[in-house]
């Protein structure tokens, strides 16, 4: 069966595209023939049980799997129509365009300011006024500025988990990417911090394309526009989130979202 969802929303612009993706870890086939497109300025959620390959799939888009031993793949990953596994691609440039937020908040052991300024500094930007402006804007975007404006020189590690995760998101926003990949961004946070991040995701999709891996079914249904269900390395189903959660086509999808397994 054709799993590509070209026809889900033909009016929208495709930002990210995966064509016939197979991924191997040594001899283990982690992903099997995945075809999926993600639309600009929308939130796409990947759901599925642990080990189904959704994180692996997410990490293809900023080439983080390149560091995994034994990793190899077939197929094309396109960002704005360009193959990012092209030999000529400069991986650092790709990652300025495609930011990533991780499962566990992982701020650097530096000040809040230096955390958010990190991406700009490694790009060689020296203009202090510009860096400061970007840091403040980014912290405002994640609704953290008012909480930390007097503590910008304090260590980011002194913040709460939810604040740390927002620093990490601000750090990603500071380099002005167009895509943000989120790998279970709220799994280490309490419900209140989670709600704040979800709210933020909702606001960010105005300007960014967001792809989010989540274990939390309610979260997927709350924040995403499209949902893809992965199972054992295959993409079982993809569609508009409200369709997936109200009338899934596959029994497996239904069993998973209703909590019968997972």
């Amino acid at each position: 069966m054709e799993l590509s969802q070209e026809n889900i929303d033909p009016t929208k612009k495709i930002k990210l595209q995966a064509n016939n993706i197979d991924v191997f870890y040594s001899h283990f086939k982690a992903l099997k023939n995945i075809n999926l497109s993600m639309y600009e300025n929308s939130v796409t959620a990947f759901i599925g049980p642990s080990g189904c390959g959704k994180s692996t799939f997410l990490r293809l888009f900023n080439r983080m799997n390149d560091y995994v031993e034994g990793f190899s793949m077939n197929g094309d990953i396109l960002v704005d129509g360009k193959n990012i596994y092209d030999d000529k691609l400069i991986i650092e440039d790709l990652r300025k365009e495609i930011g990533m937020v991780f499962q566990k908040p992982n701020p650097f052991p530096k000040s809040i300011f230096d955390n958010v300024a990190y991406g700009l500094k490694i790009q060689g930007i020296k203009d202090k006024a510009f860096i400061e402006e970007r840091v403040i804007t980014s912290l405002k975007q994640v609704a953290l500025f008012d909480e930390v404006k007097d503590d910008l020189n304090k260590s980011a590690l002194a913040l709460s988990g939810g604040q740390q995760q927002r620093v990490c998101i601000a750090r990603t926003l500071a380099v002005e990417p167009s895509v943000i990949l989120m790998d279970e961004p709220t799994s280490a946070l309490d419900p209140i911090a989670t709600a704040k991040i979800e709210e933020l995701v909702f606001e960010l999709k105005e300007n960014y394309t967001i792809v989010m891996v989540t274990h939390n079914m309610q979260q997927a249904s709350r924040v995403s526009d499209y949902t893809a269900f992965f199972y054992m390395g295959e993409m079982i189903e993809v569609g508009k989130t409200k369709n997936i959660f109200t009338k899934p086509e596959h029994e497996r999808t239904e069993n998973y979202i209703t909590g019968r397994f997972g």
């Binding site: 983080m64 990652r95 566990k104 992982n106 990190y118």
Partner: peptide, 21 residues
Amino acid sequence: PKSIKEASFAMGATKWQTIWN
């Protein structure tokens, strides 16, 4: 921690920038 290295790479840092910073 590996998470620090990953964060740095994901920000577009090269290997040397990650080592140095």
